[in-house]
Each structure stands twice: as structure tokens, then as C-alpha cells.
Amino acid sequence: MSKTLTRSKSLSKAQLIISYILLMVSYNVSAQRQEFSVTLKDHLFYPAEISIPANKKVKLVIDNQDDSIEEFDSFSLNREKVLFPKQKSTIYIGPLSPGRYDFFGEYHPNSARGVIIVSGVELAKPVVKGADNAN
């Protein structure tokens, strides 16, 4: 067997393995995504506690009704998002394991605070949107 052929076979094998890993890692599930609405007013988040289901991606829509800019920040959620005044912003979070995940507004960290509570039990679906994204 020629060296070229051996190399070609080993390349195909490497490509196949990498492709398979990526395929498994990025398994495409067309799931309906729950949407949770949050309002930011007078530098306070309403509700300040949001319960979401475990191990599912959800969509957080934050309506900044203040006249000033805010930045949603959470290390535990691994998210940073600028919330422009008088605009709605969308943040995708999860899938998360059960627990509490704090978030705050960087410009008003003492007042603009909240927590995402991830529960293992099945929650009632507040708003169901179309399957706009993959997991």
C-alpha cells in the first residue's frame, strides 16, 4: 500500500472522528423554548426571582423601562448583555443544573439584582414561542 493511500485513509479517519465528536456535542434538538419576561424599572428587576426548568435552554426577555442604560451581568450564568433604555433585550440561558444563579445590573449593582432559580421539577410554561432555535 502506498504512503499516499495510507495517509489518505488516516486523514479520512481523523475527519470522521472529529465530525462525529462535533455531531454528538452539537446534537440538534428542535425544542420549543420557554420564554420568561422580566422588567427593569427604577433600577429594579421585576420579578427579582425567576424559576426556570433544569437542563433546558430558555429565553429571558428583559424590558428596560428606565431612561438609562444597564448591563445584565452574571458570572454564574456566564452572560453579559447591554440593556438599552426603553428597549427589550433577549438573553438565552441554560441548560442549567438545579441551583441559584445570581445576576445584577452593572450600573446599579446595589438595587438591580435578581436570581434565577433552577428547579428540577417540571414548571408550568408561562409563554411558549415557536421553535426558533436549536439546542
Binding site: 481523523a14 465530525s19 462535533l22 455531531l23 452539537s26 440538534n28
Partner: peptide, 15 residues
Amino acid sequence: NPKPGNYVLIGSFLS
């Protein structure tokens, strides 16, 4: 919205 066939492309690219 990658299709399964396109993962081969990613795999091929990274390879």
C-alpha cells in the same frame, strides 16, 4: 441551523 451533513464540513475544516 446546521444540518448533520454540515458537521462533516466543520470536521473537515478543523481537520
